[in-house]
Design a protein around this nucleic acid. Structure first.
Length: 157
DNA sequence: GCCAACGTTGGC
DNA sequence: GCCAACGTTGGC
C-alpha cells in the first residue's frame, strides 16, 4: 500500500464537497498532465491512501485523507466535446487520460497548513515543498505520511 | 495582481 | 530534435 497527495482548488472541488457526496465518494477526473497520468495509470492502486490538499486558498493545507476505492480507468470526460475536460486527442479505443475514484476516510481536526509543513526540517524533501512543484498527484513517503498525521488529530468521517 | 516555474505547441 | 513562444499553475 502506498501514499499519495492530491491537490485540489476548493473553489473547484473541496473537502466539504467530497463529504457531501453519496458515500463520500467521487470520481477523480480531469488530470491532464502526463506525469500525473502515469502515476494514476501505473502506480496508484485501490486501497492506497492520499492526503487531500487545498491549493490556491487561504489557508493552503492538507485537510483530510482519502482512500482510492477504484483504480485507474479511462477518463471518459476527455471524449465529451461539450465538457471542459474534453481532449480531441483522446480516443475511446486508445485513451490518453485516466481517472480513479476516491472516498473520504479521515479528516484533520486541525488542517496542516503549507506554512506548517515548511517549518519541519524532516519534511524538507517533500515533493509539495519543492520550488516549482506543480504536480497535482504526488507520491508521499511513509515517513512523511506518519509525520504529517502526527501533526494533527484525525477523526473518522 | 504578479511572476517564476513548468509543460505544451509548432515552426524550422 | 531543437527551442522560442505561449498558456497554465500556484505560491507570494
Amino acid at each position: 500500500m502506498r501514499y499519495w497527495l492530491l491537490k485540489t482548488e476548493p473553489n473547484t472541488y473541496s473537502w466539504d464537497d467530497l463529504k457531501n457526496e453519496q458515500n463520500m465518494t467521487t470520481t477523480w477526473e480531469g488530470v491532464r498532465n502526463y506525469q500525473a497520468r502515469n502515476l494514476i495509470r501505473d502506480e496508484i492502486k485501490e486501497g492506497d491512501l492520499a492526503f487531500f490538499y487545498h491549493s490556491v486558498v487561504k489557508p493552503m493545507a492538507i485537510v483530510g485523507i482519502v482512500e482510492i476505492v477504484r483504480g485507474a480507468y479511462p477518463d471518459h470526460f476527455a471524449l465529451d466535446p461539450n465538457h471542459k475536460y474534453f481532449d480531441p486527442k483522446s480516443r475511446a479505443d486508445k485513451p490518453t487520460w485516466y481517472m480513479m475514484d476516491v472516498r473520504a476516510r479521515e479528516e484533520f481536526i486541525r488542517p496542516v497548513t503549507l506554512t506548517e509543513l515548511k517549518s519541519h526540517p524532516l519534511l524538507s524533501q517533500m515533493r509539495l515543498l519543492q520550488k516549482g512543484s506543480r504536480l497535482s498527484v504526488q507520491p508521499v513517503t511513509p515517513m512523511e505520511w506518519r509525520y504529517i498525521c502526527d501533526l494533527s488529530q484525525l477523526r473518522k468521517v
